[in-house]
């Protein structure tokens, strides 16, 4: 009886694992604003804001769905601002001051990757 229960639990765990996407990478592209996105790196001028789409990519089946929660957190909020926008998987990135900031990307509460935000000086106000 006990052995049967153990087998059932193992089977359930395997089934759940099989239904969970396996993180592979991020799909990041700009939606609004003047910043540039190359891979996981975003470059924008200080004082400027832009909207980016950030969606995790799974290694295989199943893929991530809209109900998979992606969140961003800036590790240097004095350099780069990051916060969710109104739509799913859309985020507002802002250049607060010149410098480089890393933004932690978590999926369903688990830290999976990071974005690098290069905040550069405004051309018109640069010395």
């Amino acid at each position: 009886m006990r052995k049967h229960a153990q087998r059932s639990l193992a089977l359930l765990a395997l089934t759940l694992l099989a239904c969970t996407p396996t993180y592979s990478s991020l799909d990041v592209y700009p939606l609004d604003g003047d910043g540039e996105v190359v891979g996981n790196t975003i470059e924008l001028e200080e004082g400027h804001a832009m909207v980016v789409h950030v969606r995790p990519v799974s290694t295989g089946y199943p893929s991530y769905e809209d109900f998979d929660i992606v969140s961003l957190e800036s590790r240097s909020p004095t350099i780069a601002f990051a916060e969710g926008a109104r739509e799913i998987d859309e985020f507002v990135i802002g250049g607060v001051s010149v410098g480089t900031a890393r933004i932690t990307v978590s999926v369903n509460g688990r830290d999976e990757d990071e974005l690098v935000v290069e905040v550069v000086a405004q051309q018109e106000s640069a010395p």
């Binding site: 804001a49 916060e83 969710g84 926008a85 507002v92 802002g94 405004q122 018109e124 106000s125």
Partner: peptide
């Protein structure tokens, strides 16, 4: 406070609804 262009954010709870440069 400084010459240039900067965004003003419209925020609520944990999201940024809109912005204006």
């Amino acid at each position: 406070a400084r010459v240039g262009t900067a965004a003003m954010l419209a925020r609520r709870a944990d999201e940024t609804v809109d912005y204006l440069h």
